[in-house]
C-alpha cells in the first residue's frame, strides 16, 4: 500500500473496522503537529505520520474505546514528553454490522428476512444443502454449506459481528459456541432451554476451563422476553435483542407500562 487515502478506501471496500486519529491541537514543542495522523486497524497501527511512541500507544488505547462505542470524538491526551496536552480527533469507521446465522431451520427463514430489512449483512449456514440454499434464503448475502464449526473458524469475525446459534441440535450449537466464545463478536446468542444451557455451560467450565465472565457474554436462552410463539416472533425477539446490544437502552415500553 502506498498512500493513506488508498488504505482508507480499501478499509471501506473490505468492510473492515478502523479508526483514523488526527492531531488537531498540539503544543509548540514535542515534534507533534496538527494534521499528523495515525491509522488503527485490528488493534495495530497500519499507517499515518505520527512517529512519537508514547502518543502512538495512547492513541492505540483510546482507539479501542472509540471503536467499541462506534462514536467519533475528539479527546485530549496528556503527554508531557510530547509537549503536554495534545488534542486528537478519532474518526471511527465501524465495520458494517453483520449477522451470522448458524443453522438454516425454520427460525432462520424469517430471521434472515428481518435482518435484511434492518440493513444487516447476513450470512446463513448449515451442513444440509436442503436447508441452506438460495430458494429458502433469496435475500441472504452469503449462504454456506458444510461443517458449521469449521466454517465459523474461517469467517472474519469482529466487533460488528453478531452470531446467532440456532442449529438443529444442541450439540452442534455447543460445538460452534466453542469455536467463537473467545472471539471478538459483539453478540453471541444461543437457542435452547435453560436446563440444556446450564448443562452446556457446566461442561464449558469443567472440561474446557472457560472462565465465568467469558460464559456470561453469551445470550442464552436467546432473545428478548415477550412470550413468542411463532418462528417469526422468535426471529423478531432475537433481532430485538441484537438491536438492543448494538444501540443500548432498556428494551422496555417507553410508556413505563
Amino acid at each position: 500500500m502506498s498512500r493513506l487515502s488508498e488504505e482508507l478506501i480499501q478499509i471501506q471496500e473490505q468492510g473492515a473496522a478502523a479508526v483514523l486519529a488526527t492531531v488537531i491541537n498540539a503544543g509548540e514543542k514535542g515534534g507533534v503537529e496538527p494534521g499528523d495522523k495515525c491509522l488503527v486497524r485490528d488493534g495495530r497501527i497500519t499507517g499515518g505520520t505520527i512517529r512519537h511512541e508514547g502518543l502512538l500507544q495512547a492513541i492505540l488505547q483510546e482507539a479501542e474505546n472509540r471503536l467499541r462505542e462506534e462514536k467519533s470524538k475528539s479527546v485530549a491526551l496528556e503527554l508531557p514528553d510530547a509537549g503536554g496536552k495534545i488534542e486528537v480527533f478519532f474518526e471511527v469507521m465501524p465495520a458494517p454490522p453483520k449477522i451470522i446465522v448458524v443453522g438454516a431451520g425454520h427460525i432462520a427463514v424469517p430471521l434472515v428476512k428481518l435482518a435484511k430489512v434492518l440493513d444487516f449483512r447476513v450470512i446463513v449456514m448449515d451442513d444440509r444443502m436442503l436447508f441452506a440454499n438460495r430458494e429458502r434464503f433469496p435475500q441472504a448475502d452469503e449462504i454456506l454449506v458444510g461443517d458449521m464449526a469449521a466454517a465459523l473458524k474461517g469467517l472474519p469475525i469482529n466487533s460488528s459481528t453478531y452470531i446467532v446459534l440456532i442449529t438443529r441440535g444442541h450439540k452442534y450449537d455447543e460445538l460452534c459456541l466453542r469455536e467463537i466464545i473467545h472471539g471478538p463478536a459483539k453478540y453471541i446468542g444461543m437457542i435452547g432451554s435453560r436446563r440444556r444451557i446450564k448443562a452446556c455451560f457446566q461442561r464449558f467450565k469443567e472440561e474446557e476451563n472457560i472462565a465465568e465472565e467469558v460464559i456470561q457474554r453469551v445470550y442464552a436462552p436467546i432473545g428478548l422476553d415477550f412470550n413468542t410463539e411463532t418462528p417469526e416472533e422468535i426471529a423478531l425477539s432475537i433481532l430485538a435483542e441484537i438491536v438492543k446490544v448494538r444501540r443500548g437502552g432498556k428494551a422496555q415500553s417507553l410508556s413505563g407500562k
Binding site: M1, L4, E7, T22, I24, G35, L39, T46, T49
Partner: peptide
C-alpha cells in the same frame, strides 16, 4: 461547532502510507 480543516496533497498522503 468546531471544525478541523486539514490540507491533503499527494506527497503528504504518501507520507502516511502503511508500514
Amino acid at each position: 461547532m468546531n471544525v478541523f480543516i486539514d490540507p491533503w496533497w499527494k506527497e503528504r498522503d504518501a507520507e502516511g502510507a502503511g508500514k
